[in-house]
Design a protein around this nucleic acid. Structure first.
Length: 303
DNA sequence: CGTTCAACCTGGGCGC
DNA sequence: TGCGCCCAGGTTGAAC
C-alpha cells in the first residue's frame, strides 16, 4: 500500500529514534516465510548493533535509515521497502506474528522500531553509499513526486506511447506515485487514464505536474490514505486521513462527486484503474485517422 | 520499446 | 461451515 505520502509519513514518524544507541536487532522467526534481507540477517545485525541512526531519508517509496559513521566512506544505510503491506512503527504492531524486524534502543523509555509486514513482500537492505546510489539514485528513480516539474515529466514521458496512468507508475519517470495517487491525479486534471503520453499537450503536462505536487503534498499533510482495517497506519499507529478526499480510487459504481456520473473500474497493466468517464473524457483524437461518422466527438468503445 | 504474465506472500470477501 | 476463487497500496524478471 504505501506510496509516497504514506512512506513520507513513516519517515517523519520514526524520527524519535534518531540519535539513540541501538541495543538489539532481532529478526523474529515467525511461522511464515522470511522476507528478503540483504546481504543477510547476520550481517545486518552485526552492522547495526551498538551504532545509532543519524538521519532518515526517503527515496520514492523507500525509507533509508542512515547509520552514524566517522567518515562518509564508512557510512551505511538500512533501506526499507514496504511494498504492499509493510509498516514502520514506533508503537505496538497489529499482530506479533508478522513482525519482521525489531530494533530496541538502550534508552529504555524510547520506543522500539518495528518493521511489520503481513504479506512479507517488503525488503530490507544494508547498503553502503555506492549501493544506496545504485538502488535509489537518479539512475534508478526519477525526480521525487513532491518536486516534479512539467518539463522534466514531459521530457521523460512525452514521447512514450504508454497510457498516462501506466506511465505515472514508472518510478524511473517520477518517484513515489502508486496506484491510488495515479488515479486521483488523473481525475483532478480531467484526463482519461488510457490516453497515450505522446498525445498529451504541453498544458496537460503542466497540469499533471502541478497536480501531482499539490495532491501528494496534501496527502502528506493528511498522513496518507488508510483504506479498510488492517492496512496502512502511521508510525504511532493512527490511520491516515487522505482517503476522505479520494474521488475515484476504490469507488467503482459510486457516484462521481463532481458530475454525479458513475465511477468505472478498468484494468491497465494488470492493475485496477478507477476513473470518471464524464469528467475524464477521451482526448479528441490528435494525429489519428478519425472517421467522424456521427459528428459529435462521441466515443467508440475501444477497450 | 512496450506489453503480458508469473512470482513473491497473506488474508479478507464473496459466491456456491 | 467450508471450499475455491478473486482481490489488494509494489516490484522484478522472463517471454513475446
Amino acid at each position: 500500500m504505501p506510496e509516497l505520502p504514506e512512506v513520507e509519513t513513516m519517515r517523519r514518524g520514526i524520527a524519535p529514534i534518531l540519535g539513540l544507541r541501538i541495543d538489539s536487532v532481532v529478526f523474529p522467526r515467525g511461522r511464515c516465510r522470511p522476507i528478503s534481507v540483504q546481504p543477510s540477517t547476520a550481517a545486518v545485525i552485526k552492522g547495526m548493533r551498538g551504532g545509532e541512526f543519524s538521519a532518515v531519508h526517503r527515496f520514492g517509496k523507500r525509507v533509508a535509515l542512515e547509520l552514524a559513521a566517522a567518515t562518509a566512506a564508512e557510512r551505511m544505510y538500512l533501506v526499507i521497502e514496504p511494498r504492499m503491506t509493510g509498516l514502520l512503527l514506533v508503537a505496538p504492531p497489529p499482530t506479533q506474528e508478522h513482525v519482521r524486524l525489531e530494533i530496541a534502543f538502550s534508552d529504555s523509555i524510547s520506543p522500539q522500531l518495528i518493521f511489520w509486514d503481513r504479506r512479507g513482500l517488503g525488503t530490507l537492505r544494508l547498503l553502503d553509499a555506492a549501493g544506496l546510489d545504485a538502488a535509489c539514485g537518479p539512475g534508478r528513480l526519477g525526480p521525487d513526486g513532491l518536486v516534479i516539474g512539467p518539463d522534466d515529466l514531459r521530457a521523460r514521458l512525452g514521447r512514450s506511447r504508454r497510457a498516462i496512468k501506466v506511465a505515472l507508475l514508472d518510478q524511473q519517470a517520477v518517484a513515489g506515485i502508486g496506484n491510488i495517487y495515479a488515479a486521483e491525479i488523473l481525475f483532478r486534471v480531467g484526463i482519461d487514464p488510457r490516453t497515450p503520453c505522446d498525445r498529451l499537450r504541453a498544458e496537460s503536462w503542466e497540469a499533471i505536474a502541478t497536480t501531482t505536487r499539490d495532491l501528494l503534498a496534501t496527502a502528506v499533510e493528511m498522513e496518507g490514505s488508510t483504506i479498510g482495517d488492517e492496512t496502512y497506519r502511521t508510525a504511532d499507529n493512527r490511520p491516515g486521513r487522505f482517503q476522505l478526499l479520494h474521488q475515484v480510487y476504490g469507488r467503482e459504481g459510486s457516484h462521481c462527486r463532481a458530475c454525479g456520473g458513475s465511477i468505472v473500474r478498468i484494468v491497465q497493466a494488470q492493475r485496477a484503474t478507477f476513473y470518471c468517464p464524464a469528467c475524464q473524457p477521451r482526448q479528441p483524437g490528435r494525429r489519428r485517422k478519425e472517421r467522424s461518422s456521427g459528428g459529435a466527438p462521441g466515443r467508440k468503445t475501444v477497450g
